[in-house]
Every structure is written in C-alpha cells, then in structure tokens.
C-alpha cells in the first residue's frame, strides 16, 4: 500500500539505525489491543493453571501441615500430580478458593458465615468437602504445673482469684491473656466480659511469636495463659490443661461482647473450589475420600514438630507404616 503524504519521503537509513524501540512498542500495543478485543469478559477463575498441579491452601498450624504433607505426598507419589502449597490465613483462604487461586482447604474450622457467602447458597464458588475425621477444640490453655500450684485455677472462678499470677509488664495491673494469630476465630473478649475476669488480652500478632513466648515461659516454669487449639503441636510438646468454661450450647456465643460458654467442638471439614470438585479428576477423588483420626494426624505432626522432620519426610514415613489407612483413599482406577 502506498502512503500519501505531503512530506517528502524519508531517506532510507541503514537497518542498524532504525528506531528499534518504536517497532517494539507498536508490536506490544497491537498485541495488547488484539488480546483485549478477541477475549472478552474475564473471570478471575480463568488465570492460567497447570491441570496437573493441585494447589492446597496451607494454614499455619502443624496439624494442618500434617494433613497437607500426607495428602500432598500421596497426590505426588501415587497419582503423579504436582502439589503447590499456598501459605495463607484462614479467611483469605476462602477468598482464594472463590478467586480460583487455590483448589482446596484441607482443614476448615467452622466459618459458617463464609460458607453462606461463597457456598451454594451464596455465589456458588466453593463446596463442602465433608469431614476430615479430626475433631478440633479451641480453648484457653495453661501449663499443668500451675494447676498443681494453684488448685482450681483452671476454672473461671480460679482465674478471677489468681489473675495477679499472670501479670506482666505488658498487661499492667491485670492478668495477661496471650491471644493467638490474628486470623483465628476468637471470643476471648466476650469470655472476659461475661465471667468478669480481670484480664488484658495481649495480641501476639502471630502464632509463631505466641508459641515462642509460651515455650519460654514454660521452660522457666512461669505462669502463662493462652489461646490454643487441640490438635496442635504445643499440645504434644507441653503438658497443658484447658480452662473449664461451661460447655458450648447453641447460641451461647452469638454476642461477641458477652460469651457465656467455652468454644464449640469443631468437626473439621474440607472445602473445595467448586470448579475443582467438578473437574479435579483423581486428585479430587483422593482428597474427597481422605479421612483419618486425631491420632493419625498427631503422629505426623509430632514427626514434623518434635523430630524436626521435613514435612515430606514425615509424610513418607507415615505412609510407609500405614498403608491400610490410606489405601482406600486412592481412586479405583489408580490402584
């Protein structure tokens, strides 16, 4: 095509001196325009994904890590998948499922509100994957040596009476209650209000920092009162007692400012990205059929936490010793 221009034709230059940047820029712009024009609406779920990779959300406690290690090991070694562990907090993990950034949460503690938002009744991007077989208990924990020193300290009344034992410079003239990671489910302030406990919540800000402090105090035999859950690696490591609040009943914890009961027992479950449940193939089937006991999980968690084994080595050891437990999880066609 000839161009009609009033300007005189440009002199031809040697090829090496052509403005390379211009050409490149035009190509980039053209490609972008083409891409924008040919594709249309983009849903977040259409991000490039390798179908042979399973992306597991990894919450930061060792029980979860044990789940992820064993499930991941089986996916890799029995079914030939690649596994990517995405470290993420509890609630953002749901968002990640919604956006298609991860495929499964292996150990979910409650979160009915999120299920309403993202589940079949909400926008339908996640589905319940059934129980893992583990039962979880959140609570206030203290070392057993304190109960021996101050009998009855593991009750709301005992805590009220001995609150000064837990004083620290950071909590001032009230006892210190060491809260857990910011992402965890809590009703601690509600408990303090309802039982009129002279305690100040000190937010450790991360589970790692909290556990470091707990361990230090435990080693020195100092008093410490903190948020924790069972199963969890500190539970295996330290001899702890859970404070006996009245048992959980329906509705006793609806008002976060006034909670008259202990944390509920959680039947831990799996949560899938809806798309993964639809076309996750053998990987989905394995995770769906995976269930095990607290003892199984603790065995792996102990290898990771106490023996400082790499999660993958811990999983390998457990898998080698317990074929009867995991054989049934493997899909028929892959056995």
């Amino acid at each position: 095509m000839g161009t009609r221009s009033a300007r005189p034709a440009r002199p031809t230059r040697p090829a090496a001196r052509r403005p390379r940047g211009t050409g490149l820029l035009r190509t980039v712009v053209l490609t972008l325009v083409l891409v924008l024009a040919t594709s249309c609406a983009v849903r977040t779920t259409s991000v490039l994904r390798d179908p042979d990779t399973v992306r597991i959300a990894l919450n930061a406690w060792v029980g979860y890590e044990a789940d992820a290690a064993v499930v991941g090991y089986l996916l890799e070694h029995e079914l030939g998948y690649q596994v990517q562990l995405v470290q993420i907090d509890e609630q953002p993990a749901w968002q990640a499922l919604d956006q298609g950034a991860v495929d499964v949460i292996l150990e979910n503690w409650g979160h009915e509100d999120l299920m309403r938002t993202y589940g079949p009744e909400g926008n339908g991007t996640v589905v319940d994957g059934g129980p893992t077989g583990n039962v979880g208990q959140i609570g206030w924990y203290l070392p057993r040596y304190l109960v021996e020193e101050y009998p009855g300290i593991d009750t709301p009344e005992g805590l009220r009476e001995h609150a000064d034992v837990f004083r620290t410079p950071e909590s001032g003239d009230r006892g210190q209650f060491l809260a857990g990671a910011p992402g965890f489910v809590t009703s601690d302030q509600g408990l303090i209000n309802h039982f009129d406990l002279p305690f100040e919540i000190v937010f450790a800000g991360s589970e790692a920092a909290q556990l470091t402090e707990v361990r230090n105090r435990y080693e020195r035999g100092d008093p410490v009162l903190f948020y924790s859950q069972d199963p969890s690696w500190v539970q295996n490591d330290l001899d702890l007692v859970r404070v006996r609040f009245p048992e959980w009943t329906q509705g006793c914890d609806t008002d976060p400012e006034d909670v008259s009961c202990d944390y509920p027992r959680y039947e831990l479950n799996k949560v899938f990205r809806a798309g993964f449940a639809r076309d996750g193939g053998a990987a989905y089937e394995l995770i769906r059929d995976w269930t095990w006991s607290n003892a199984d999980q603790n065995a792996v968690a102990q290898l990771i936490a106490d023996d400082r084994l790499d999660p993958e080595d811990a999983a390998a050891r457990w898998v080698a010793e317990h074929p009867d437990v995991w054989r049934p999880w493997i899909p028929e066609e892959a056995r």
């Binding site: 924008l36 249309c40 609406a41 983009v42 849903r43 977040t44 779920t45 259409s46 991000v47 490039l48 994904r49 390798d50 968002q95 919604d98 956006q99 950034a101 938002t117 926008n123």
Partner: peptide, 28 residues
C-alpha cells in the same frame, strides 16, 4: 467487590484482565 467480582464490568473488563494476565505471566 466480593459480591460483584465476577459479574461487574469493572472487574470483568478491568481488574480481572490485569490479575489474570499477571498471574499467568508469573506462571509462564
């Protein structure tokens, strides 16, 4: 945003392009 991320044109033709493009670039 949570309710409209995959329905509102602002996201379908805007932010999602970026996030999908970038996510894919990292993977690539």
């Amino acid at each position: 945003v949570v309710a409209n991320r995959n329905t509102s044109p602002l996201f379908l033709y805007g932010f999602n392009y970026l996030s999908v493009g970038l996510g894919s670039a990292v993977v690539l």
